[in-house]
Design a protein around this nucleic acid. Structure first.
Lengths: 194, 194
DNA sequence: GTCTATATGAAGATAGAC
DNA sequence: GTCTATCTTCATATAGAC
């Protein structure tokens, strides 16, 4: 039992669970501690601050994005590579058994709370590189919006269809389909306008 | 000086401003009071609770949605009426000089904080009627997602393009274009599958 | 209609014993 | 590695004077 079952990981799991249910601000360290059967003070042994708990979770997601960015680095934007970017992004973001998926939801639903943290992690800048691979900065507004939306739908796909009875895989596939459909519509209005 | 310039309205304006900047949870009544040059207690004369401040703002938006719902009531879903629904929704949601627009942003960014409130106002149920006018409940997952996205992009259009230097009107037009484009793609996979 | 003053509680965080 | 005990700060909210 070297790596697994560590208290640190348990804290992360419970925190992610509660943050997701109640929101980051409304979840207190006391609650997290109670769910684990320990005291608040115990948490401070593992994490210096409340924010460090969530930032520790987001680091893994950031690293996954970096892998995609590294792949992208030497590619030229073509319809093929653009579609492949969306596929790889989708796979990177939602892969392992739910943690990343829940984190994406958390980031989207708690933007004010995580605003400074997000700034520190340069999540926006990472995404900007991806956006600009899909559309040039001078493209029409509608296309700029489509580019952003094609990533956003990958984040949202899963929980926007909460009620629908389908497997997680089916939801992901649907989200990717919509995302690629948006890509298809890029440049539809001003075809090849430089 | 009968209707306007009331303290109540000033409180709403400042609250909306600060909630938007810092988030609902992170904004205290003390801050709101200070920005107005009054004391916390003064706020309690006009609003029983903090939540009542924001719910008073959301009521107007709810009523606007109800107007659209009333228009929709006796319509049959056709490509024309569906497009018209999106146009009317866009107009209703973003119309007057920024308040509604900022509220939409607020609702999207502060979901956990406003979760109970939103439940009470039946915002989800209202939207469900709209979704189901665009797609039948049994439609493919991708189409269900497109239907939801076509409304969401109207909410987001404005602030997803924050950096772009364009007028508010141009951004709204772009958002509507993307929204209608998603509508076009409905049923693309399984054309007329009942 | 707005204020002062205060009640009450919970939050995040720390010091130091075990 | 976890505890008890405590600090500090700030929140929402109320009572009652002006």
């Amino acid at each position: 039992m070297g790596t697994r079952s560590d208290t640190r990981e348990k804290i992360q799991d419970v925190a992610l669970e509660l943050f997701g249910e109640q929101g980051y601000d409304k979840t207190s360290l006391r609650e997290i501690a109670e769910h684990l059967g320990v005291t608040k003070a115990a948490l401070y042994y593992h994490f210096k601050t409340k924010e460090e708990i969530i930032s520790s979770l987001l680091q893994a997601t950031g690293e996954r994005m970096d892998v995609v960015a590294a792949w992208l680095a030497d590619k030229q934007p073509t319809p093929e590579t653009r579609a492949e970017l969306l596929r790889r992004y989708a796979a990177a973001v939602v892969s392992d058994s739910g943690r990343h998926f829940r984190l994406m939801r958390l980031m989207q639903e708690n933007q004010p709370a995580l605003r400074e943290l997000a700034a520190g992690m340069r999540g926006q800048e990472r995404l900007k590189v991806f956006f600009e691979f899909l559309v040039e900065p001078g493209a029409p507004l509608a296309d700029q919006l489509r580019a952003r939306l094609s990533f956003m739908v990958l984040h949202m796909g899963m929980f926007a269809l909460k009620e629908a009875d389908a497997t997680q895989d089916e939801k992901q596939a649907a989200a990717l389909e919509v995302s690629l459909g948006l890509l298809d519509q890029l440049g539809g209005s001003v075809l090849g306008a430089q």
